Simulated assay, not measured.
Amino acid sequence: MSQIHFTIDFEKLKDTVMDSELNEVVKSSLVLILNEYMEKERDQYIQAESYQRSAARQDYRNGYYERELLMPNGRILLKVPRTRSGKFATDVFERYARCDRALLLSMLEMVINGVSTRKVTKIVEELCGESASRSMVSNLTKKLDPIVGEWASRPLNTIYYPYIYVDAMYIKVREHKRVVSKAVYTAIGVNEKNKREVIGFKVDHNESEPSWHDFFSSLKARGLQSPKLLISDAHSGLKLAIQKSFIGTSWQRCTVHMLRNMIQTMPKKTSKEARNELKAIFQSRKLEEAKRQKDQFIDKYEGKKAYQKAVDVLDEGFDDATQYFAEPEEYHVSLRTTNMLERMNSEIRRRERVIRIFPNEQSAFRLIGAVLMDYEETLDLGNRTFLKKQI
């Protein structure tokens, strides 16, 4: 690439510096330098300096037009040279557009990390001396749409996911001048390399069998194969959708959710011993031991009114809650609960709490997708793996 050499009127620059505040000094200096640079760019393009006669001339000068450029210390007004043909274009705005891009990316990062729109506008004003309206920040976040959309629809047929965790949470969204509750479905897969990936998410009207089935269908349309084990809570619609969507897949009921459901039915003050006995069942190292402790619990508490619901839940759900015993022992602690998904959902909730109510469903999809993309980058960094040995 050819280089452009130019000189600056330092007497003019000195006068400007002496009569200006520091911020204005920087701005004035930039205006002088960039205007002179663009002038030399036009000379090079025309292949002739001002008033120079030359057989190599390519075009003729045609005055200037003014254009603003946003810099880290504020906006500056430049005189951009023109030519008669209109074909000359300076590369100053392309080169310094990275200042704009850096600012925009910083604003996006603030939004994704849960900084409110109102606070973002104040931060931008402090950094650049420029005001940024709330609508400007909101419109800026729309630049995430194609990025999130491409990530959310990427193919899943390039690697196999033996273990998949799914869950749903609820958010508030404005719809037809009303505030409604919507479900956010999320799925994390553990691939053949023992690395975790956020393989899908969806914003839908409610948590139901048809909605879960649609979510699973969208994953399969992207190439997802039936996993060995799918881990989730015991939502009735989710259970039916799993059975219909993934033939041959075992379902692991989250033991934390199941324990919570049982403990909530027991007396708070007098059930400490029973609570410890329940927890011990799912801390067993072997299935036979877990079955023995389960039978002992049922024999001990069956027929006691205060514990009957817990006995019924344990008896009915034990097999679904112990599917992880069919997998290598090293995996048990990681496969028996959805705690890992709960951690991810808390990250979504932390950002969502700042917004409180999403203006529409697309904005919810956009921000949650950006949060999930950001969160995925923190999973299993380097040579770390989620499970302790190769699948």
Rank of each mutant, 00 (worst) to 15 (best):
S116W: 11
I171Q: 03
D380Q: 12
F216P: 00
G74P: 07
H205R: 12
L34T: 01
I188T: 04
G86W: 15
E126G: 13
N383G: 15
Y324C: 02
Q390Y: 03
S363F: 09
E125R: 10
A152G: 12
I123W: 10
I123N: 07
K87Q: 15
S363C: 07
G200R: 08
A56W: 05
E109N: 15
M340E: 00
Y65H: 14
D319M: 03
T337A: 10
Y375D: 14
L32V: 15
I391R: 04
A152M: 15
K202D: 12
L78V: 09
M136S: 14
F10W: 14
V256T: 15
S135I: 14
P210R: 13
V31G: 02
R222I: 04
Y160W: 14
V115E: 03
M373G: 06
L108V: 00
S211K: 13
S236T: 14
K304Q: 14
Q52W: 01
A234Y: 02
E39A: 00
W251V: 04
R98W: 12
A306L: 03
I76Y: 00
A364Y: 08
K239S: 08
R384N: 13
D204F: 11
N191G: 07
E125L: 03
K291F: 02
V137M: 07
L287R: 01
E327P: 08
W251M: 07
N23I: 10
S217H: 12
P81R: 07
R350D: 05
R95H: 13
L219A: 08
L367Q: 14
Y170G: 04
S2T: 01
L335W: 05
A221L: 07
E273S: 13
V120L: 13
N73K: 05
Y96W: 01
K177R: 09
Q243F: 08
F88N: 00
D315A: 04
L379H: 09
H235Q: 10
V124S: 02
E377D: 11
I147W: 06
S138H: 04
Q44W: 06
R95D: 10
K142M: 15
K182T: 04
F216Y: 04
S236C: 12
A56C: 13
A326S: 08
V256S: 08
L127P: 01
I199A: 07
K177W: 00
E11L: 09
L259E: 13
Y51T: 07
I188C: 05
H332M: 04
N276G: 11
P227Q: 02
V198S: 07
V184Y: 00
E126P: 00
I368D: 05
K172M: 09
D233A: 01
L32N: 14
S245V: 01
D204L: 09
R101Q: 13
E24A: 13
Y301C: 06
Y324T: 06
N360Y: 15
E66H: 06
P359V: 07
S334G: 06
S245A: 14
A168N: 11
S2E: 09
R82G: 10
S334R: 09
V313F: 06
Y160H: 15
R222H: 09
N62V: 06
G237K: 08
S232R: 03
Y170E: 10
E39T: 03
